[in-house]
Design a protein around this nucleic acid. Structure first.
Lengths: 196, 196
DNA sequence: GTCTATACTTCGATAGAC
DNA sequence: GTCTATCGAAGTATAGAC
């Protein structure tokens, strides 16, 4: 049975504060540390307010994810029209704060089923958008896109940056400097228009 | 103040059952779904038994992680002496079940500080062990290890397989087939002894 | 439109009986 | 070596006051 309880306005200041608090707790302590009480405490509001603005915790997480994903899409659009699109694509995935948050949402998706499809949907959007730009650059540089399909190169780039950020958050470092140097070198080669 | 409460034997059947249950819940529902009551229910034991065998939940997670990591190290040792070490390294990281569990532990580490250093320690161990074998193979094949440091290649391979498995668990597929084909091709090239 | 009081559930953990 | 009884804290969510 669906509840008829009233729900707070979307442009409320408190609502935004609750979403901000949610993000902060996720990054600092992990998604499992997010609870209505902790969020309210962080936002300096009363716990039940969480349920006034978001009917369930799923609704809260969904709203937090969508807000962040939309910001990311806008950011990506801006950045891809910059002078060095390849480096821009790499730098985009190499941002620790946003990657950490993304990985928390992915972990969250494992036991919040309603989150899963939304994450997958946006992740596909990001990949396609980035791949589009990458394909253009690769074609311009005369790189063999049969041997190196842009979508595969894009997937590899994303994988590397995400895992590097993830490992660094654990305090790992083995192989990181070498990997970053390797990627930087390859990006420079691609940028100059090597044949492989 | 340290509790003097008694603790169960390490070779107890119930203790092993509790660790099994912990793993199952982590994979199926995420680490946040693991609670002493849920574990006991899954293992068909009484809830307080969890605290009899593990003083705290941190102790439980630590024991679960160590047990799995040691199994992984043994598995890795066996696999690396096989006929096709490159493919063995790749296949090792490309195993969905173990990767899913690993990613849950990583997510868990974000708010269970005592887990973090243990995960990092084992992850470094794995990387060094795999890199050692990779370096030997690359040297044999005459691959330029200055331009492609084995530890960087190893980091990249691990990144790709982990992210592919992770994304697939979300229901994503964009770029995966192309990426797997690209990796397979490169591994074959490396295996045959290309110059780059 | 916003917040408070509160019900109900589940959690981790301990002491002590068997 | 295992289980019962139980405490205090924290969780989600709702009804209703302001």
């Amino acid at each position: 049975m669906v509840s008829n309880r009233r729900i707070g306005a979307e442009d409320s200041k408190s609502r935004a504060a609750l979403l901000d608090a949610t993000e902060q707790i996720m990054v600092e302590e992990g998604y499992a540390a997010v609870s209505s009480r902790r969020i309210a405490q962080r936002a300096e509001l009363k716990p039940p307010l969480v349920h006034y603005y978001f009917r369930t915790m799923d609704d809260l997480f969904l709203a937090a994810f969508r807000r962040r994903a939309e910001i990311g899409l806008e950011h990506l659009s801006m950045v891809l029209t910059s002078g060095r699109p390849l480096h821009a694509i790499w730098a985009f995935g190499d941002d620790p704060a946003s990657t950490a948050l993304t990985m928390e949402f992915v972990a969250l998706a494992n036991h919040r089923k309603v989150i899963r499809s939304e994450i997958a949907r946006y992740a596909e959007l990001f990949r396609l958008k980035q791949t589009e730009v990458l394909a253009t650059v690769m074609a311009e540089r005369g790189i063999d896109t049969d041997r190196f399909p842009p979508v595969a190169v894009m997937t590899v780039m994303t994988s590397i940056s995400q895992i590097l950020v993830l490992e660094e958050s654990l305090g790992m470092a083995t192989g990181h400097a070498e990997t970053r140097a390797l990627v930087a070198g390859l990006l420079d080669d691609f940028g100059r228009g090597g044949t492989s």
